[in-house]
Design a protein around this nucleic acid. Sequence first.
DNA 1: CTCACTTAGTGCTTATTTTCAACGAAGTTA
DNA 2: TAACTTCGTTGAAAATAAGCACTAAGTGAG
Lengths: 231, 231
Amino acid sequence: MNIPAESYPRPIASVDLATFALSETGFDVLLIRRDLAPFAEYWALPGGRIRIDEDVDLEAAARRVLRDKTGVETPYLEQLQTFGGARRDPRGWSASVAYVALIAADRVSLRRGAIAADVAWRPVEGDTVASPLAFDHAEILRCAVARLRNKVEYTTLPVHLLPAGFTLTELQSVYERILGRRIDKSAFRKRIAEAGFVEPVPGEKRRASNRPAQIYRLKPGCSTIFFDRTI
Amino acid sequence: MNIPAESYPRPIASVDLATFALSETGFDVLLIRRDLAPFAEYWALPGGRIRIDEDVDLEAAARRVLRDKTGVETPYLEQLQTFGGARRDPRGWSASVAYVALIAADRVSLRRGAIAADVAWRPVEGDTVASPLAFDHAEILRCAVARLRNKVEYTTLPVHLLPAGFTLTELQSVYERILGRRIDKSAFRKRIAEAGFVEPVPGEKRRASNRPAQIYRLKPGCSTIFFDRTI
DNA sequence: CTCACTTAGTGCTTATTTTCAACGAAGTTA
DNA sequence: TAACTTCGTTGAAAATAAGCACTAAGTGAG
């Protein structure tokens, strides 16, 4: 057909990622330290321009950017929101599609990226990190943390933060750490059983100096499940 | 500073809107009939290119597009999701930020737009409309209907579909029509009272050939409220 | 060898919420 | 003025959720 697009000047189009993983006591977000202007020396969410010749769609662009800048391959990726306007990037009108990624602690292997002098996990305290962030990334991170907390309340999303095999007590602990409150053990187990998204691995037990715990895994084909009410 | 943006070819950037209003028995979505290629003669969600010299941000772009193409000024606008990829528009790699708009039936006044030969409300049946839609707009509409139904379940969002003054029975009827199921009257009223987002208008009653009903209005400063559980 | 200790996993009792249905109130109309 | 309709509220029965107490199954010290 060869239809010309009406030619308006196009905004800068990019993707940014808020990638979370568990830490000792809470959870961390993956940041890079910028070494080029604008915002050189600032920490930022990993992000990059959409490449219309490389990326087939937005999600592919997000995966490529995360891989290239940090070496992380994420199993769970969810679109968060798009932030766009004339003022958020000094280089011009820009729109950035933000994604939330979750990764199991045992799958992380960072590598230095091209533009970033450094890549690091930083603890999320309250709803953000200690350092100031480049661009409007502080706002994006707040939205991402809010989305994470909110979805943890009524979905099975935290399994993506654990290794392939885990005990129910470990899973409960993830919920408690992200939500910041205690959950009753019997109520928790009832919900998990109803949701039916995990199964015991026959014979596998976590051993310690006490009663061993059954190890569970995500049932094949089960992605995120919504609870009827709340966890 | 004058920092040059690395020059990658930029995707087409636009906004699309799924605008809902109540009809006699259910609810309608606002569509335009395209008269230019691609997809000439097809019905489509109102949408348009982002104008980096006119729009300060994405939401402003969405309001402008809706106003210019249909004459509708919406009081409620919420970002839905961004759809982007190489294949969704024959003119090239495009990203479209989709919005959901809600409008009270008494505020609608359509006008013909520049590109559209026709603008019309079409009934939503199940999770879509009867006609085939241009581009990937059928998918966008399905997402929008899903978001609407889901948020109605646990927020006070339906007030935006009613005129400024309404009775509790009318409000309950909106919930029931969108969700497609009956709600218990006493439970409904308890939830509305707890949420505390509406107040009775003193002296105002809806009169009919039976007991008159108290008229309520949205409390000043109250936007969308989330219920603790579900409606 | 046994007993104290720790964490896993499961009942059970109580409190809360949901559901259903009925009833009095406040109008209109025959 | 009596019948009818919808509004608005109340209360009992059924279902769910929350709290906490108990048993199970291991380890390790004495």
